[in-house]
Design a protein around this nucleic acid. Structure first.
Length: 469
RNA sequence: GACCCCAUCGUCUAGCGGUUAGGACACGACCCUUUCAAGGUCGAGACACGGGUUCGAUUCCCGUUGGGGUCACCA
């Protein structure tokens, strides 16, 4: 398929949340899959609710996720004249009319309609009235003259054929009383002018699509292909809220997730390619299609996100991880890493990264490499350092001091010798050793820890004075 | 309330009339093992319910129930 144009059209009223990120991802993947274009449009026609901070947050979020758009982002607000022009054309062709109804009148219509069970909320008060009846001093809105009879059908790529009776479609407002365009008009005009061929968006817009389709027909334009994707739900199945993780993508970044993790996780949420689970971005581009999108809403599962992140952390390049860890390390240590420490980190990373689920965890697990001398023991580790253990470690230290080659193999041999001569199981030596070296009961293999720490630092950490009392 | 959408293990899902209903995460056990991970083996775990259609329904149709979305001069 050629000439595919998709778009992501967020309204800048907040950060780029996880649901929006997935919508953007699907649009991006489809465009890239088809060799088409992926456009970004900022829907800022509601000037009171829009903010530049939000625009920034959305763009940063997309950047971080690696979802690059083609061309410059379009600001909807800059296209107002064009929207008004379209509304005027509709007015001229008789597809739209001026409505002078007051808010009170509209409210009355609605309550009446709801009580009567009528589907149409606007009763057509000004639909066919003569303009001469227009009250003075009231600025009218421009309403679309929606079809009263028949049905509107959308052949949605995800939802299938969806039909709605036209008597349930209201005469939507195109231009507000102050002359500014509404979202309903703006999307239709902008999607057309931008040459959008595929509208992939949340299914909360499905109901809007029927109104838009009629508007498009009145304008004499071609309909885009629609794909309304189910919304993401929270772990309890309810609508996604902040509590559930409807956080900005930057929150996921701060929690230590990698962008490739999010891409993989999000594409698998509601889309599948057989039994494939770990899907690289390139594979996602190769495989993505609208047919693979499921029709039922999916719930967010952080445990699976953790698992995937562990996978991508393990795959990640060490120097990249080191750079990503730098701010966190600096925060923990209150200083930057020295050149030797950086080297040490690079040596430790292969051992470290296979046991972490997030970057945050990775940082926490690596701190002990950079403390001055032996790190403070946590409770469990302290228990291992009994008087017996400490004197044993002293003897081990003496042996280590004379060691020729400081390699993991040689170190293991030395430790095993001590265990043997003291008639201890290896664990009885290794665990106190780990406690002394790392301050914890959990760490990478002790021999690797010693290797990375180096002779000097290792011996320094083994100079333990027996506990007082 | 009206309209629209949805329904397979706890979760994400495969399935597109005939399968021992498959995989992944999480969970349990075991193996490996100096700890923790990783890895390996095994295990438990699902077609919401009721009618049809059909020789045969997880699969097609209808209804029920449950969940979700939308009903603005917001987007």
């Amino acid at each position: 398929m050629t000439d595919v144009v998709t778009r992501f059209a967020p309204s800048p009223t907040g950060y780029l949340h996880i649901g929006g990120a997935r919508t953007a991802l699907f649009n991006w993947l489809y465009a890239r899959h088809c060799g088409g274009r992926f456009l970004l449009r900022i829907e800022d026609t509601d000037r009171a609710r829009s903010s530049e901070d939000a625009v920034r947050a959305i763009i940063d979020g997309l950047d971080w996720l690696g979802l690059n758009w083609d061309g410059e982002p379009i600001r909807q607000i800059t296209r107002t004249d064009r929207h008004i022009e379209a509304a005027s054309a509709l007015l001229a062709s008789g597809h739209a009319y001026r409505c002078y109804a007051t808010p009170e009148e509209l409210e009355e219509m609605r309550t009446k309609a709801r009580a009567a069970g009528t589907r149409r909320l606007y009763d057509g008060l000004w639909r066919d009235r003569d303009p001469s009846e227009a009250p003075a001093g009231i600025d009218p809105v421009i309403r679309f003259r929606a079809p009263l009879e028949g049905a509107t059908v959308i052949d949605d790529k995800v939802q299938g054929e969806v039909t709605v009776q036209n008597d349930g479609l209201d005469d939507i407002v195109l231009l507000r009383a102050d002359g500014t365009p509404t979202y309903m008009l703006a999307v239709v005009v902008d999607d057309h002018d931008m040459g959008v061929t595929h509208v992939i968006r949340g299914d909360d817009h499905l109901n809007n699509a029927f109104r838009q389709v009629n508007l498009i027909a009145a304008l004499g334009w071609d309909q885009p292909i629609y794909a309304h994707i189910p919304l993401i739900h929270g772990a309890d199945g309810a609508k996604l809220s902040k509590r559930h993780g409807a956080l900005g993508v930057e929150a996921y970044r701060d929690m230590g997730y990698l962008p490739e993790t999010l891409r993989n996780y999000l594409v698998r949420l509601g889309w599948s390619h057989g039994d494939d689970e770990t899907i690289s971005t390139q594979q996602a581009i190769d495989w993505f299609d609208l047919d693979g999108i499921g029709r039922s809403p999916a719930r967010l599962d952080l445990a699976k996100l953790d698992n995937l992140n562990g996978h991508y952390l393990n795959l990640a390049d060490d120097s990249r991880l080191a750079a990503l860890m730098a701010p966190g390390l600096a925060e923990h240590l209150g200083r930057e890493l020295s050149a030797t420490e950086e080297k040490r980190l690079m040596e430790a990373l292969p051992d470290l990264k296979q046991r972490a689920k997030t970057l945050v965890e990775l940082v926490e697990n690596s701190i002990f490499y950079f403390t001055a001398g032996a790190p403070a023991c946590d409770e469990k580790a302290a228990k291992l350092l009994t008087a017996d253990a400490i004197s044993m470690l002293g003897r081990l230290r003496d042996n280590l001091e004379g060691l020729q080659a400081w390699t993991a193999e040689a170190l293991e041999k030395a430790v095993r010798q001590i265990a043997e001569s003291e008639e201890l199981k290896l664990g009885k030596v290794a665990q106190p050793l780990r406690a002394a070296l790392t301050g914890r009961t959990v760490s990478p293999g002790v021999f690797d820890v010693m290797r990375v720490l180096g002779r000097e630092e290792t011996l320094r950490r083994l100079e333990i004075s027996p506990p007082q009392q």
